[in-house]
Simulated scan of single mutants.
Amino acid sequence: MIATGVVACPPMGQAEAITLDEMYHPGGADAVNRALNRSYHPRSHGLVFEIVDDLDIGPADVVLDIGGRYAAHSLAMVEMFGCRAVCVDPVDSNNERARTAVAEHPAGSRVSIRRGVMEDIPGSDGEFDLIFSHDMFFHVVDADRALAEGHRVLKPGGHLLVYQLFATDLLEPGERARLYADVAVVPERMEPDDFERRASKAGFTIEMIDIVGSEFREASEEDGTNLTSRQLLYAARLLRESTALRAELGESEYRVELGNALWGVYQMIGKLEPRIYLLRKPTAPNA
């Protein structure tokens, strides 16, 4: 098992207070500018597909894109690797958009859409070579059943790739309660130790843990996509114009949009920690 990435910052409030002399010492600004106005070469979101590529997924393979929403990742994988993909999502409107996207895509014939949840995957035993779970496992209510289902539909030797966010000690209890309620998070899914324990219990071998931290978000700022900057601006507007935007958007849409904006901002400042797990179904029991 390989663990890479960053270590979270220590909880706030444990260090001694900075003095005024330390705060305003001569030359501090120049040193800060030199240190922080250079790139530390963050990896981009393309890393998840590099991991798929390393698994030698190809035309003979079938990938399950679980919780795949609009089939964007399914279409990307069939285009990159020539595989077939099955996109499964429980939300009817997501599946409708996915079918439209598939119909309009040149490689769409290699993607099929099925309605379902991870706790009851619409697939046969050993049907898939890879399960691709991207930023969705925090919605899963019954993690043990979901992982058992993933184990069932994977071929022996197949992999489950999970990109998932977890809470850190910097996420305050009040922030947790509001965020989890607003973006339909099951609180127990936000603890990495719990996920690892349940994955092992389901029979998976944990081959890799990559602690991505803020890298994808930093890369988005450096390449000009500015995803987190935009979400920070949205959060500011949603908070400052709360009354007007609640009336315009409706209460549930307002809460979802504020939750989504903070979901991104919290990744950048270490309150949420993205990780990539690569799990393997053994080729034989206890292998």
Rank of each mutant, 00 (worst) to 15 (best):
S109I: 04
N94T: 00
G174N: 08
V162S: 02
D169M: 07
A71E: 04
V111N: 03
S93H: 04
D61E: 12
G58V: 12
V183W: 02
V141R: 15
S112V: 10
E104V: 00
D54A: 15
S124F: 01
C83F: 05
H151D: 03
T168S: 08
S133N: 13
R99T: 04
D182M: 10
S74D: 04
D169C: 07
I131D: 06
P90F: 05
I121L: 13
F128D: 11
F132I: 01
D125E: 13
K155D: 00
D56C: 13
G126W: 01
L165V: 15
S133H: 05
R152G: 07
S124H: 12
D61Q: 13
V162T: 02
R178E: 07
H139S: 07
D142Q: 04
A146P: 11
R152N: 07
E104P: 03
V141E: 15
I51A: 07
E149P: 03
V102K: 10
G158H: 00
L160E: 01
A148C: 09
G123N: 11
S74A: 14
D129N: 14
C83G: 07
V102M: 08
C87R: 02
G67H: 06
E191S: 06
T100S: 01
L170E: 07
R152D: 04
I57M: 09
T168G: 03
V140I: 12
A60S: 15
P122H: 01
P192F: 07
M77A: 11
V117A: 14
G158A: 00
A107N: 15
A98V: 11
Y70R: 14
G68N: 06
L75Y: 02
R110K: 13
L75G: 03
H151A: 03
G126S: 01
E191L: 04
I51T: 08
F137Q: 02
Y163S: 10
H134R: 13
L165H: 10
M80W: 15
V186A: 10
Y70I: 11
R189A: 10
V141D: 14
D142S: 04
R115T: 15
E50W: 02
E79K: 14
R99K: 14
E188M: 12
V185M: 01
R84N: 08
L47K: 01
H159T: 08
E191A: 05
Y70E: 10
A71M: 05
